[in-house]
């Protein structure tokens, strides 16, 4: 038996013992009525998404794809109607207490985190609504938000059809803060889009360096921000390429959008010529001084001793000579 098979057998025997087979999962009325105390902010949803990916995805699968584990009863897709039918209180109760193969998270997840997950789960069904309705809340807010300084839409964005999701980058030089904004152009007007997963990253060999937190989504004004670290190594001119984009895993659900801007915010690279400094591996005339002096010192010590010995022998010679002459 493979490990998977053992696991399933274990699960199935669990159902038999506890008698939970397919029956409706009834939640006490008081629990059912419980309200979600955590506001459904972009931050909370982002956290919930991360928590979902860590703790739930292995069984419940990708939301909307109905690809959960083939168990009986099946871990339902959180985007499904059956799942969404649950009240917040009901979901909370189920996560907390579990049943059969569904583990109880009472001990493993703080209450706060369970509510974050619920906010995320709810956002799955609200998404369409949110995308279409979130207009800039008021003018004052937008004015406070930094100006979008640079906008470099990719080639396909330039040919964009009206209403396509686009990204732009803005910068605050003093604090080295990067803002990415998700928006659509509708009838000549820029409409910010909230709840869009956007990551801010710096281009790097092999794999870009992400600056924004994993799972961050745009706020109600369409913004995501990140702080540029002071000690990031860059090229000889200190230049780095900053990218904002929709993460690959989300592109299917949203769209492909990416902008890149080059900034001189990095630490300048000062190339070192390895053959410049004195070292063991360098040419003879670039040998380490300690080695040169050790060598010369030892050789000089030997030569001085030899000279001393010769002087002693010469003395023997002279003593003999003078007494022979005498």
């Amino acid at each position: 038996m493979s490990r998977k098979q053992v696991f399933f057998t274990f699960l199935l025997s669990g159902f038999v013992v506890f008698g939970y087979s397919q029956g409706a999962w009834v939640v006490p009325a008081a629990d059912k009525a419980k309200k979600n105390p955590v506001a459904s902010t972009a931050e909370s949803i982002g956290k919930g998404k991360n928590l979902y990916n860590t703790h739930c995805k292995s069984c419940h699968g990708d939301p909307g794809k109905n690809n959960g584990l083939p168990l009986n009863p099946k871990p339902t897709d959180p985007a499904s109607e059956q799942y969404q039918k649950n009240t917040d209180g009901e979901i909370f109760y189920k996560i907390t207490n579990g049943r059969g193969a569904m583990p109880a998270f009472k001990a493993t997840l703080p209450e706060q985190d369970r509510w974050h997950i619920i906010n995320f789960v709810r956002s799955l069904s609200k998404k369409k609504v949110a995308e279409n309705t979130s207009e800039p809340a008021n003018q004052a807010d937008t004015a406070q938000a930094p100006m979008i300084a640079t906008e470099t839409p990719s080639a396909q964005d330039t040919l964009m059809a009206e209403g396509k999701l686009r990204l732009a980058l803005g910068f605050e030089e003093d604090s080295k803060t990067i803002y990415a904004r998700a928006f659509r152009v509708k009838g000549g007007k820029t409409v910010p889009v909230s709840m869009v997963p956007v990551e801010i990253a710096v281009k790097r060999y092999f794999r870009d360096l992400r600056l924004s937190e994993a799972g961050t989504v745009t706020d109600e004004n369409g913004y995501v921000s990140a702080i540029f670290p002071d000690d990031l190594p860059a090229d000889t001119a200190g230049q780095v390429v900053i990218i904002a984009r929709i993460p690959e895993a989300e592109q299917e659900q949203f769209s492909v959008a990416q902008v890149e801007v080059t900034k001189s915010w990095g630490v300048k690279l000062i190339p070192q010529n390895m053959k410049e400094a004195r070292s063991l591996w360098n040419d003879n005339h670039k040998l380490p001084l300690w080695l040169l002096f050790s060598y010369l010192g030892a050789v000089a010590g030997v030569l001085v001793t030899f000279a001393y010995i010769l002087s002693l022998i010469f003395k023997i010679y002279k003593i003999g000579k003078s007494s022979m002459n005498a």
């Binding site: 010995i309 023997i316 003999g320």
Partner: peptide, 24 residues
């Protein structure tokens, strides 16, 4: 033979040279 005449000074010099070299 370096004009060897077996006087104590010569012995002393020989022994000294050998000792220095034995250490070196």
């Amino acid at each position: 033979s370096a004009n060897w005449i077996a006087v104590p000074e010569q012995y002393a010099l020989i022994k000294k040279s050998i000792r220095v070299l034995a250490i070196l």
